[in-house]
Nucleic acid binder design. Structure first.
Lengths: 204, 204, 204, 204
DNA sequence: AATGAATGAGGCTTCATTCAT
DNA sequence: CATGAATGAAGCCTCATTCAT
């Protein structure tokens, strides 16, 4: 016991990878609270790092946004794929939409849906996600779980609505979006569907 | 004597009221394109005026927003009241929501739903509108045109969704929102309604 | 009585001269309250006139200041001359200083004492005033009413001090300056004078 | 992605503390020349720094003023305290006034005497200084070195006068204020004092 | 690799001044 | 002659980004 030499510090991962995570986490929180207007200073302060460190990890604030959004899209895509061979395609679609909204970072995803100038990688991931969703929708349509005047684009467009709707309420309960997803999904069901006054758009 | 300034180039005189309209129009467009972050400089440039002129018409950027939003709320309230004694309360509510979305300035209205710090007058107008909508909803509920687990707050929150949904699509047809209003309204109907997984929120 | 024709209006001096006076009066008040930072808009508002009218009467804000200051200097000069042949030169000087401070627009006069770039006319008037004061001082010196190490320049420099001193006090009584003129003038008297640690400056 | 900005030219790194001093020095000079109206741009230009750097050191222009004024008040207070137990209270007061004026930053102190809205700390320091001066005055009064109709408030008000008086002279010798302090202090002595025409004000 | 000081463009707002009506 | 709308320079301040240490 006496001759033990513990010189090396306990390996506190203060390395680059850790700081990157700190920054991403801080950024998601700040963006969540203040919207995209959150400043780099806010983010680094929350992360407990210096501004210079921020730019070592992300060349640009926009790059950070991309870095936040990319994994979200990938997670959504996995969630969608996980439902592709479910036995009840209607329930599978609803489950996917629930998981998706539950990420509560759809907010960030919607940045992208608009973004005219998204980086190539993001565009590609997004297109892949949309394709997966389209498969989910097709299966639900085929099974009769969805009204037949609905398209995948409709579902994609409506996907973020529950989250956005809830954002109008200053102090909403965190799970309130479930209510509006329920209502909107009921609107997608075949029972009691009224003819729609306008044709479906072409996909983005 | 100290405050002498350099000579200034001419100034063109035009109709004050007209410039105010120019500014309001330019502002609605810029806000539509860039969100509330659109700068006063952008707005005046689009209006073809000098920055100083902006502040002659609106003491503050916030004042401009108020000036844009107030009449929209008033128009919405009128549209709602016009449906208060319709014979078919369900159709009346749908008609109101259609007129409201048709204004396509709901986007601006939604600024307000969030705005914790709206000017007193705006808050008052908004509360009046919400009250009118509540009456519309009550009548629709009483007539059985709405599923009975829906509240006025639900309708208010969902009111702007069709417009927002469509905004994700870069080059959407101008009337595409009608489609999504149709879908969402179908979700509010009693036929085929599934129990909602979360209770209604309390009004703002 | 029946054939009288009173067509002409009752000659309400709404002519240029009257507006000029309105502007000068408003300016003195605003400058008094807000200092030289008072804006042209403030002044014209107080005068009940339009900004354009201001610039019809004064090409420049600086011109207005000159227009305010000139008559003050002239009045001071008259006041000084009125004391030139008084029988008691010491009392005469004190009387002049009292009248001068009493104008309470010394504040404005002091603008000038600094002003490197005063218009020619103002410089001339000022020099004339200084010359008159010098005569007053010479007579007081000759009569033994002033300590003999004092010069006219000293008196000129000290002339505005009582007003300035009082300006530090936010809610000073309007006549408080009399107290400090008394103290300072006592410092100029021969009785109890201590040798001064620094020689008199040369006149501006 | 929207917030991309153009590339910025290099940035020179230097000692933070040093730049703060540069800014303080530049500010004192600019304020001395142009009064409190000196702009942040003027100050940073004089300091050879960028505008942004200013706000890194002082959150606000007002903060800069506070930063300038605070140490001056503290130095004055020390100077006053150093005289509290002098054997000749009259000479002690004169010595304090001399040291105070010698700082030649009284000018800045006078900002404060007016400032209705000074930060709490400044108000506190100022009150402490005034209290110390009051002790000095009381002792001088008790020793018979001051005329007995004088109060501490009088001395405080007159304290800055020598500096201000000299400011009227464009190219005054730097020590000319000593002359006017001499004159004014003679006015405070008991010998040859004439009754004052106005009562002492209450302290601020 | 991390830090944080420095940078300067750009945002909102004020104000002297010009000029069409 | 008066009016008041328009102008744009300038003021204060914020923030993404760069770079010496």
């Amino acid at each position: 016991m006496s001759s033990a030499r513990k010189k090396r510090p306990p390996a506190v991962r203060s390395d680059g990878a850790r700081n990157r995570e700190l920054l991403l986490a801080a950024a998601e929180q700040e963006f969540g609270e203040q919207g995209i207007a959150a400043s780099v200073a806010d983010i680094t302060r929350r992360a407990g790092l210096a501004k210079g460190t921020f730019f070592r990890h992300f060349a640009t604030k926009d790059d950070l946004i991309t870095a936040i959004v990319e994994p979200h899209i990938e997670v959504l895509d996995s969630a969608a794929r996980a439902q592709l061979d479910a036995v009840e395609p209607g329930a599978a679609l609803l489950e996917f939409l629930t998981v998706a909204a539950g990420q509560r970072q759809q907010r960030d995803v919607s940045f992208l849906l608009r973004a005219g100038s998204a980086p190539a990688r993001v565009t590609m991931l997004r297109d892949r996600l949309f394709d997966t969703i389209a498969q989910l929708v097709d299966r639900a349509l085929a099974s009769g779980a969805l009204r037949n005047d609905i398209t995948a684009t409709d579902v994609i467009l409506l996907m973020c609505a529950p989250i956005h709707v809830v954002e109008y309420l200053p102090n909403a309960q965190p799970d309130l979006w479930r209510r509006y997803l329920g209502i909107i999904f009921d609107g997608l069901r075949p029972e009691g569907a009224h003819p729609l006054p306008y044709p479906a758009p072409t996909p983005p």
